[in-house]
Design a protein around this nucleic acid. Structure first.
Ligand SMILES: [Mn+2]
Ligand SMILES: [Mn+2]
Ligand SMILES: [Zn+2]
Ligand SMILES: [Zn+2]
Lengths: 156, 156
DNA sequence: GTGGTTTTGCAACATAGTAGCATTTGTGCC
DNA sequence: GGCACAAATGCTACTATGTTGCAAAACCAC
């Protein structure tokens, strides 16, 4: 709300060599460093929970970053395909996006069944050693814990 | 395709006292035994994988059971709310429904990342003993294994 | 700076799910 | 069997979320 209106005449992106965390992440994936990508990634990095397309769009708007709905979809898809972000299909029919601050996305998630919030539980991926029925090839395990988040659980 | 056209003039549902598995399940939940509910539940009971709203609707149509899209949504919702069926938000944005043939829905699922198929892994729910960050109240754990199903894994 | 490729914006479309309300149907009771 | 009444259905319209195609703009290597 306060730190806007800084890049009024800046149409080529990062002219100096000092890259932010978001910027380096993007270039590391071989993508172009665009206003929307950087902003979205920074929003995701700063978030303490997974965000919907809509929430991210709102955050962008609040920062005065003009963008198109479709562009945001494509940006998020790109982040997921690049392995930078992860996508979770929620119970409500909105996908939520997040980035694992540290390394690849190998951790469990907590889903609050009351407010719908989803948080990453980094450093918590129990080695699931199950014996599948024959023929099934296991790739990865996805663990989602359901319950009440600290905010929602207060009243109980 | 073959066993249709049997209840042409039968407008009150089960006049004899012998109830099918689906029918007893429905009455046990305090619901009314309707044509659509019975058929849907039987379809789900017979399925070896979770089915989408659309797939179920198609199956109903094939059985000559006239129904409305909305009714099917409501029927499925009711089955889930009653605890008879379970709902899974897939990667494609279609929810898939299934019933646990035995008892309540406490098991893991396998999701084929190639064909999108989801199967219930009954009798397989590893006791997930994780220590959550403070304040979080754990209700249940949801485990989804990702990989290739027997059909899709053949080529690999 | 220029050229070529990637990314964006726009408009139109598609799919999945929801809401309100009149009509029909299942069930308990006689 | 027939009645009364609540529960479930069918319809129509609507919302939310995501997708496609294509021309214009923005990045970036040179
Ligand atoms: Mn995560
Ligand atoms: Mn299941
Ligand atoms: Zn909550
Ligand atoms: Zn498969």
């Amino acid at each position: 709300m306060l730190q806007n209106h800084l890049q009024l005449t800046c149409n080529t992106m990062s002219t100096h060599t000092h890259l932010s965390a978001a910027e380096s992440l993007i270039t590391a994936q071989g993508g172009r460093v665009t206003r929307t990508r950087v902003a979205v990634l920074e929003i995701l990095l700063a978030a303490d929970q997974s965000l919907t397309h809509d929430e991210i769009g709102l955050a962008l708007a609040e920062q005065g970053i003009k963008h198109d709905r479709v562009t945001l979809y494509r940006t998020l898809d790109w982040l997921v395909e690049s392995g930078v972000a992860h996508k979770m299909a929620g119970d409500d029919r909105a996908r939520r996006f997040g980035v694992a601050a540290s390394g690849p996305h190998e951790h469990a998630h907590f889903h609050c069944d009351r407010c719908g919030k989803v948080v990453c539980l980094e450093g918590l991926q129990p080695a699931v050693a199950v014996n599948l029925p024959g023929g099934y090839q296991l790739d990865r395990a996805e663990l989602v814990l359901h319950g009440a988040c600290p905010t929602c659980g207060k009243g109980a």
